[in-house]
Design a protein around this nucleic acid. Structure first.
Lengths: 199, 199
DNA sequence: TGTACATCAGTGAACGCGCGTTCACTGATGTAC
DNA sequence: TGTACATCAGTGAACGCGCGTTCACTGATGTAC
């Protein structure tokens, strides 16, 4: 009996690859790390998990990053950048979309603050700094889309609204009863939407 | 040269101890675990850390709990119980106290939902269940102290307020800039307090 | 444009450490008489 | 109430596994001529 083996290379991730290939690999590592971390948390995702998701072996990791902590900081920064892409038009619309069932279910692709905020408090200085920068950007973005008498009032309202959104998503995902989860999202959506729609 | 050694026993935690001693040990393990978990998260606290904090050695652990996961579930339930002790009179007062600098700094003794909510999503079924039960109790408590036309509206408002409190504490602790942290707490406090004070 | 060689991205085995868990042992507790 | 013995809470060494990290090696890339 003869077994014919086809050597299928999904990507040419063999030995030495070109420089653009390497840059592409780095981007892929960061993207997959961002998704894995959001889904499973920093600690339970291993370096080997990330590299496998990126289609490489774990040994190549240290050619791209100094350490797992280094990866965490960069992946977090990337995920936060991805989240804050696009302009926020009206706070009420943003809240409705943020507090949607779709976002509730998409942990891996969803908001990094909701998915990883609680754990980042205990991470290294660089990860904390990335989070703080992302938080500042988000507050600014939301303040521009928040109604209010003056800049100070809009900023205040934006902060409170952002806290409610992140908190509601955390609580909804925490609950093991999906009816309660839906109620939490709905109640917070209502609170952030009410009175802001011109009718 | 002679060294005189005094054998100081802080507690008689030698071999076999009495049954009430054992019950006391279990309570101490749970209390210390609750504090350590809130401060450092589930993963970075080891069974040996907890037992040392309780004044015992790690080998005794499995006489008290089935596994680390078992400890997590019980410690979480205990911490949540501790948090929800006492009645909530007025939502605005509760929010002011919850969003205080004192609470912000007291992670180990503070709200377990804010301290561990983000991580509990990825914990076992029992830990999730304990969190869900705690969440339900908290919503009920707050709803009773929330102004509103009817039960449904009070409950809605209580949920949104609770989400804002947990979110604001998470964001404040996330920031590595204490000025921003204080601003987040202050803004959310203002949002939850405004209009509710009779003047 | 073609050839020779140095570089270096990726591979996979190996290292070492820490942690959850187990276990033989100890000796005080608690019970039976 | 006192004595003899079984029980069992706690001790500390040991086990085994997983994970972050290192390293010798490979062979394609990219450069010098």
């Amino acid at each position: 009996m003869t077994t014919i083996m086809y050597s299928v290379k999904h990507e040419e991730a063999d030995m030495r690859v070109s420089r653009e290939q390497m840059a592409e690999h780095r981007r892929k590592i960061l993207r997959e790390a961002g998704r894995l971390f959001r889904r499973r948390g920093f600690d339970s995702v291993t370096v080997a998990d990330v590299m496998q998701a990126a289609g490489l072996t774990h040994g190549a990791f240290y050619g791209h990053f100094k350490s797992k902590d280094d990866l965490i900081a960069h992946a977090l920064a990337g995920a936060l950048d991805g989240n804050s892409a696009g302009e926020v038009r009206r706070l009420a619309d943003y809240a409705a979309s943020y507090l949607s069932e779709r976002h509730y279910r998409d942990i891996a692709g969803g908001c990094a603050t909701a998915g990883l905020g609680g754990e980042t408090i205990r991470q290294g200085a660089e990860a904390r700094a990335a989070m703080t920068a992302g938080l500042r950007r988000q507050i600014d973005r939301l303040a521009d889309a928040t109604p209010g008498r003056d800049e100070i009032e809009r900023r205040r309202a934006a902060i409170a609204a952002w806290a409610a959104m992140v908190g509601a998503m955390t609580l909804a995902r925490l609950s093991d009863d999906e009816t309660l989860s839906a109620e939490i999202l709905e109640a917070t959506r209502a609170a952030l939407t009410e009175g802001s729609k011109p009718r």
